[in-house]
Design a protein around this nucleic acid. Structure first.
Length: 654
RNA sequence: GCUGGCGUAGCUCAAUCGGUAGAGCGGCUGAUUUGUAAUCAGCAGGUUAUGGGUUCAAGUCCCUUCGCCAGCUCCA
């Protein structure tokens, strides 16, 4: 074979000498492209520029314009950082970087003493020098023994051990730039100066191989981009995330606070409680439609219950246990499912009452390790919009589908869009029969697909008793959160000996589903606060309208307006302070109250109000007759029409 | 729980070399009666997270405990 051919995105083919690299192909296309090239995409797979091309493959040259290009930049920045650390701290041993370079880059080091923030600054300076050296990256394929002797010679024992992770038969590639060498699949940029802008953002401990029994290494995180502008945009996004932090908004909007007097247990203020109750009563209002029956089960159980369920074995240390009578040990419930199973088993059940859908909003307590606590996102005291469905095994698909219907309605009313669904499969620690698990996982995947969704897989992410369907959404800052979940239980019906009498008169074991739409109310509130920046849909806003009299002369009329609104079920308040209108408007805006109702002499004389809407039109609003306004507002709230429009970055400061 | 960082008024932050705690916002009081994002003035507010130590002297240096933040681990 004298030449090979590759296909280009525009349909052309390119003839190249055998063994030609991606870079050679780029050079053949154009010098400019070759200079900008960061990696190649061959038959859809990202490859290094130095990798040889095979005949007949489809080739695309990846530059900084391609999202994959930025991943390559981050990955190369990672090597440059490791190089900088080795130059400054020759005794440091390198471990590995990150496998997924979609966001940050990182590298772990074994060092004598932890890195300080000052070290970080020095490492950053050293990195800048390495980038300025414009050192070329080189790629070589080596034998296992050669690789071992390279790293053993450098005293990199962690790296030698990592070498054993590479399965036999897989090629071993080394990447070098300057004097630095690393075991790596690539791809990498051509030269270090293609890393346009970078910043080291934090240093933290990380267990070797992610196991807390192992020694702790020092991990440095950084971000890198093709240009300074991209870096600045990213930093601005981080700043926006800080502005939207739910702990900060919780204080600013007077919703809740956390106090060392009870770590991990929120104090809900009156407005926060309106929000919390608003969510609970909303979900509750949907239960008749979707066939749920609400129940309440005890807060404290003999620990026997949790031994039956299996939770005691696995989560004993994370439960609050108290002493009952004599030798009886009681546990504060960390979840509702064992109680619901106990309730199910309290009498004989018939197939006629299935599916039995039990819902509960009780507060749950989990003794989370202190280091795990974070605002409302991870708490010790929480509640879920929890429910358990007991049904005949053949009804599972329908029930999953019905759950999606409810989820869709809830998310529509909350303005949550772009949900991605995946199934989490059997973890290493599981209860039950692997064959049952395989069937259950398949059942869930089929149910997700039947509902018209693509279905991802999260390997080994299931709970010990069940594979999970997880519904993830991306918030306005692009962060991924898991909200709704449905789990098909493989353990509890058997462990609790649950039975129902079937149509044929014999006793059978019911299938059991665990499900929640919002998940933990606390965590949902945290995510939703950050997603909406505190601009809740009108129907959920703690204060829906504030009445703003212009002078004391109209205070009496303003009171009447407030009362009319309240009578119509609107959560309205009156700002009767002796301040100017602009001042009151500013306060209402900062409190993110959706509607301001201005009343002055003109409004009083005409029996009207002048509504001012947050995010409304800029021009001066027109007066509306009071009756019309109140009726229209009440209707708007009842219909849940106004979902949040998430303000763009920086907009809420105008 | 582990690693690192942090903890000063309700909030955001000052306080030189270790020299005896200050501002803005908020709160309160008074004046102002205001038409679409901040009217003016005055007043109060602190065991510098906690307990110990070093020192003539500690917000500042050292140790303890607690909490918070980031990450790790975990997340029924």
């Amino acid at each position: 074979m004298s030449e090979i051919e590759v296909r280009l995105p525009d349909g052309r083919t390119l003839a190249l000498p055998p063994g030609a690299s991606v870079l050679a192909a780029a050079e053949r296309i154009g010098a400019g492209l070759a200079r900008a090239a960061l990696a190649g995409r061959v038959d859809g797979r990202l490859v290094d520029l130095r990798a040889p091309l095979a005949n007949g493959s489809a080739l695309e040259i990846v530059t900084a314009k391609d999202p994959a290009g930025s991943e390559v930049i981050r990955h190369s920045a990672e090597h440059v950082m490791a190089d900088a650390v080795k130059r400054l701290f020759p005794g440091a041993q390198i471990d590995v970087g990150r496998s997924d370079h979609s966001e940050k880059f990182q590298y772990d080091f074994l060092v004598e003493r932890p890195f300080t923030p000052e070290d970080l600054a020095r490492i950053e300076e050293e990195m800048a020098r390495i980038v300025a050296e414009k050192a070329p990256f080189t790629r070589e394929i080596v034998g296992r023994d050669e690789a071992r002797s390279v790293f053993a010679g450098l005293g990199e024992t962690l790296k030698v051990s990592r070498l054993d992770d590479i399965p036999a038969g897989e090629p071993i590639t080394l990447f070098r730039h300057g004097r630095f060498v690393d075991l790596c699949r690539g791809p990498h940029v051509q030269r270090t100066d293609q890393i346009g802008a970078f910043k080291l953002i934090e240093v933290a401990g990380a267990y070797w191989r992610g196991d807390e029994r192992n020694p702790m290494l020092q991990r440095i995180y950084g971000i890198a981009f093709a240009t300074k502008k991209d870096l600045d945009e990213h930093l601005e996004r981080l700043e926006e995330a800080r502005r939207r932090d739910h702990r900060r908004l919780g204080a600013e909007l007077d919703l809740f606070h956390l106090d060392p007097i009870s770590p991990g247990s929120p104090f809900y203020h009156p407005k926060g409680m309106v929000l919390y109750n608003g969510l609970v009563s909303y979900i509750r209002s949907l239960y008749p439609k979707y066939g749920y029956q609400e129940v309440m089960t005890p807060q404290l159980f003999r620990s026997e219950l949790f031994k039956t369920s299996g939770h005691y074995d696995l989560f004993h240390d994370d439960m609050f246990l108290v002493q009952g009578d004599e030798d009886e040990e009681l546990g504060v419930k960390p979840m509702n499912c064992p109680g619901h199973c106990h309730l199910f088993a309290s009498r004989k059940r018939s197939y006629r009452e299935l599916p039995l859908r039990l819902a509960e909003f009780s507060r749950l307590h989990r003794n989370e390790r202190s280091g795990a606590l974070t605002g409302l996102s991870r708490v010790r005291s929480m509640a879920q919009d929890d429910g358990h469905i007991y049904c005949e095994p053949e009804q599972v698909g329908d029930e999953v589908n019905r759950f999606f219907e409810m989820m869709n309605e809830v998310y529509r009313d909350l303005g949550i869009e772009g949900v991605q669904i995946s199934v989490s499969t059997r973890p290493d620690d599981f209860f039950g029969d692997p064959a049952d698990w395989d069937r259950a996982e398949e059942t869930l995947v089929q149910a997700v697909r039947a509902a018209g969704h693509a279905c991802g897989i999260k390997p080994k992410e299931g709970a010990f008793y069940a594979p999970k369907v997880e519904c993830d959404f991306f918030d306005v800052l692009g962060r991924r959160w898991t909200l709704a979940t449905v789990q098909l239980d493989m353990a509890m019906p058997g462990r609790f000996g649950l039975r129902y009498v079937g149509r044929d008169g014999t006793e059978k074991q019911p299938a059991m589903l665990h499900r929640a739409v919002l998940g933990s109310l606390e965590r949902f509130i945290a995510i939703y606060l950050e997603h909406t920046a505190g601009d809740f849909p009108l129907w959920l806003a703690p204060v829906q309208a504030t009445v703003l009299p212009i002078t004391d002369r109209t205070l009496g009329y303003a009171r009447k307006v407030e009362e009319r609104l309240q009578t119509a079920g609107v959560r309205a308040v009156l700002d009767g302070r002796g301040e100017k209108l602009g001042f009151k408007i500013r306060e209402a805006e900062m409190q993110k109250i959706p509607l301001m109702v201005v009343v002055g002499d003109q409004e009083e004389a005409n029996g009207t109000v002048t509504p001012r809407r947050r995010f409304g039109p800029k021009e001066a609003p027109a007066a509306v007759p009071l009756d019309v306004f109140v009726a229209g507002l009440a209707e708007e709230i009842a219909s849940r029409r106004s979902v949040p429009r998430s303000p763009a970055v920086g907009e809420q400061h105008r």
